[in-house]
Amino acid sequence: MPPRSARQLAALFTAVLALTVSCAIVRGPNTTAPNLGLTVPDGFQVSIYASGFQKPRLMALAPNGDVFVSDEKSGEVSVLLDRDGNGVLDSSQVYAQGLNIPHGVTFHGGFLYVATTDAVLRYPYQPGDVTARAAPEKLVDLPANGKHYSRTVVFGPDDRMYVSAGSTCNACEESDPKRAAVWVYDADGKNGRPYATGLRNAVGLEWSGETLYATANGRDLAGNDVPPEAFYIVKDGQNYGWPYCYPLSAGTKQVWDKDFGRKDQTYCDAAQPALATTTAHAAPLGLAFYTGQAFPQPYRGQMFVALHGSWNREPKSGYRVITIDPKTGATADFLSGFQSGLTTTARPVDLQVTPDGALLLSDDGNGLIYRIAYAGAR
């Protein structure tokens, strides 16, 4: 093994230090404090909506308004019922179980689609179903596990299926073209092809109108502040830089990753720029565009993003929800208070707008789903 540089040794020390504390720092929210002790804009209220999950991840709204959520640790997909629409959970029902790290969930054409670590499955679905009415049909084989093992599936306005899979590594050249990429398929899983490449781990994937947006987790061990986490408009046939490049700011050319040391700046000049960026290692995961009418006008149409939080940065970053203006790329804090020094009280994952205009937030550190509602400014 070649000798390590001082920068590499410092990064390795930071990583080891983080690993020694990261397994023990998540503590449950303070339920006795207003808004669970969290900071939100004036007029918003936060409450615990559902509990008892092992590792809840992505959510999807069913055609009848039920909310489906994946639990990758239990291997289940559950449905959250609020059939009277009063903003209080009626019950939670396991819809499907025995799945291999289920993650992405979405509805299309009379089916519930579930992306597991090694496949895209679909279940026949009729509005109101709370348990699967048949065994799932496997549509697509996906590369399993790896450093980034979660998979996301969404449908576009073209009725085609878009699937993202993360990389096996921090920075490497992948042998499987489905890694670190978004692929597009017909709704039945046929005619698959690469749609976008160079996305290290695009956990958040969402269409707004005719435009596809993605969150991206940047590489580790390049420093406390490099690279910033990035958010992209995902275009057909385009490359987004990883592992050779990374963005330093929104709207500018990406820079060559000298530590990785392959390709060159010319290659990076052709990579797609970021729409927006935020603090390095904040780990942006799920996103949702606010399509409801209950929040004040400035929040309508905004992109809400869950920052899962850093494992290898001191001071820590993330552990909050931010908004991004899709027109300008401007970012702003929306929900914070999950972090105090080395202690964190949640790991935000995904957001989902409900029929009554509230916003649900999953937390895989505590096995909770929060409800964020607007009650009016004081």
Rank of each mutant, 00 (worst) to 15 (best):
A96S: 14
S47H: 01
E229A: 11
T131Y: 00
T39S: 14
Q238Y: 02
D364C: 11
G218H: 03
K253T: 15
L368V: 05
A214K: 04
T32G: 13
F155P: 10
A181E: 08
L342Y: 03
A270N: 07
P157Y: 05
S74D: 14
A144S: 15
V21F: 12
T117D: 13
R7M: 10
D364R: 09
E314K: 11
N191H: 13
T279Q: 09
I324K: 07
D363T: 03
T131K: 15
M161C: 07
R193Q: 06
Q352T: 06
D356C: 02
V67P: 01
S362E: 09
T279Y: 00
P56I: 12
A196Q: 09
T197Q: 13
A135W: 00
N312F: 08
W183T: 03
V163C: 01
L139A: 08
G85E: 05
A332E: 10
G318A: 07
L17Y: 07
I48C: 02
A10M: 02
N145F: 12
Q293Y: 00
A60C: 01
M161Q: 10
M59C: 13
G337C: 06
Y185I: 06
V94H: 01
V140C: 06
P177S: 15
F155K: 07
G75W: 10
D333L: 08
D269T: 12
Y240R: 11
G286M: 09
G341P: 06
